[in-house]
Amino acid sequence: MNTSEQITVIKPREKGLHIDLKELWRFRDLIYLLARRTFVAMYKQTIIGPAWAIIQPLLTTGILTLVFGRFVGVPTDGAQPFLFYMCGSVPWSFFARCLEKTAQTFTDNEKLFGKVYFPRLCAPIATVLVTLINFAIQFAFFLLFLIGTNIFSAEKIQVSWGLVALTPLVLIEMGLLGLGVGIAVSALTVRYKDLALLVSFGVNLWMYISPVAYPASVLNSTYPALKTVFMLNPMSPVIEFFRAAYLGTGTFNAGYLLLSAGVTCVICFLGILLFNRVEKTFADVI
C-alpha cells in the first residue's frame, strides 16, 4: 500500500501552542477560496460593487477633515488636511476591519466549523486577505489624491521612498495585529457573548488613543512624558509611519515601530494560544 500516505492522529485537547504551518500551507487553496467567497458574496447583487470600498473612507476622511481640521482646528504637521486624515484613516480602517471581522470568526463560521474540519486559522487569515483587497482599493485612491495634489498644488510633498519600500512589512504587521486581537476576542466570545458587543465600541475607543484624527506631535508639545506610553499602543507608530512615508511629516521613530512589531508578535502569539484552546472543542460549547 501507499506508505507515503499521511497519518492523522486525533488526541484530546492539550495545553500549549499548536500551530501546524505545514497543514496551513496544504490548505492554501482553501484560504484563497474562502477569501474569494467572502469577497464575491460581499459585492454580489450590489449595484456599484467594490466601489463601496472607496465611499466609506472618503466619507470618513471628509468628516474628519471637516470636524477636526476646520471646526476644532487640530494641527496637521503642515500637511494638506484632507491627505493627512486620509493617510491616517485608511490604514486605521484596514486594522479596524481586520480586528472586527476576525473577532467574528467563530460566530460567522459556526455552521461550517460544526460540520467539517479544516485548520480553523484558514478562516481569519482569509478574512485578513479580503480586508487587504479592500485596503488596496482604498489606498490606491489615496495615492491618486496624493499624486493629484502633487501635480496641482504649489507645495510639493516630500515622499520618503526609503520608508515607502517598508510599506508591505508594516501592512503585514497591521494584519497580524488585527488578526491577533481579533482571534483572541473571537475565542473569548465563544464563552463570553458579552465581548461581542464590546468589540466595535472598543475599536472606536482605540481609534481615539491612536493618532488618526490628530498627529502624534500634539503630545510632544503638551504631555511629553506621556509620549512613550502613547507609543506603546502598537497602532501609533504604524500610523505615524504612513504619514512620514507618504506625506513626509510627523514624528516617525524606527525604534517605536520595532517596539510596535514586538508588541504585535506578543499579541499575535497570545491570540493564537487562545484560539488553539477553543478551536478543538468549540463545537461543544457554541
Partner: peptide, 21 residues
Amino acid sequence: LISRITAPTEGRITYKGRLAS
C-alpha cells in the same frame, strides 16, 4: 470526533490518508 470537529476527552483516533465527512 473522527471528522475532527471536536476533540475526544480521552483516547486517540488515528487514520491514514484523506478523510471526507
